[in-house]
Amino acid sequence: MKKRKAGLKIGARLTLFLVSYMPLFVIMVFGQFYKYSNYLNWGGFNWDSLFIFIKYFGAATILIILSVYGAVGLKVLLTNIERRAKTNGNLVKIDDIENKNSESISYLFTYIIPFVFQDLSSVINVFSVTMLLVVTFLIYSNSSMLLINPTISMRYSLYMIEYTDSDEGKKKKGMIISRNKFLEEDDQVKIKKIGHRLFFAVDIGGNDAS
């Protein structure tokens, strides 16, 4: 029996999850700082000032840190996986293809918009958002949602494909992301596994469309 290789490690999956929520984080951070901007006056280093900052801007600051971590991690992740796909990716021929970019719009409105108007100075709201994000991550990281990402979709395209594996000669199905926004049937690409039936794809000539 052929041994199945694991997909991305937990850190890489966390990076993709955080990036998928980056539009939400930006909106929430901006709203929090704007709503409580009158508390941004310098009050020196003391416990009262620290308490006020943590109460009104602590959660927003954490979101900023997570966003930076996600952005940097995404850059490293995509650079590495694209390089690996080009050098030792599995060559396949696309037999059937369907563009799935619309899935990112559904994800945006279903999983992101409901959080937009949360007040991050409320402990109950912060706890609720945290719990929902944790549960969503556990589901997200082990499903095809891993590639459904509004932020990544600004540059990459998401496809559901049926393909022929050049090594095994078998027809298979999977979901891919690629810089090429105009992939069609009979195109040949190299794919690198991200998760179960989830792949990163590059054109065999390395000339993915921007």
Rank of each mutant, 00 (worst) to 15 (best):
L147H: 05
G205R: 13
V92R: 01
A6S: 14
E184D: 10
G169A: 04
S104I: 06
A201P: 06
F200G: 06
M22Q: 12
F200Y: 15
I148S: 04
L198M: 10
N88Q: 08
G89H: 08
P23A: 02
Y69P: 07
I97L: 07
G31I: 04
Q188R: 13
V116M: 13
Q118F: 12
M175Y: 09
I64Y: 01
N180Y: 09
Y140P: 07
M28Y: 09
D203T: 11
G169M: 04
F115G: 11
G73F: 06
Y21P: 13
E82Q: 04
Q188E: 13
L18G: 13
F33Q: 01
G89K: 06
I105D: 04
N125G: 08
L120R: 04
K190H: 08
V134R: 04
M154H: 11
L133H: 03
V123L: 10
I113T: 09
K100M: 09
S143R: 03
I105N: 09
I10K: 09
T151L: 10
T87D: 10
I191W: 02
I10N: 05
G205L: 12
D167M: 11
I204E: 01
K86R: 14
D95F: 04
F117H: 13
N99F: 13
I161G: 05
N41T: 01
K171S: 07
S143W: 04
I194N: 15
A12G: 14
M145F: 11
K93V: 04
F30H: 06
G43D: 00
L24A: 04
M1G: 15
Y21H: 12
L66S: 08
S157T: 05
N142L: 14
G31W: 02
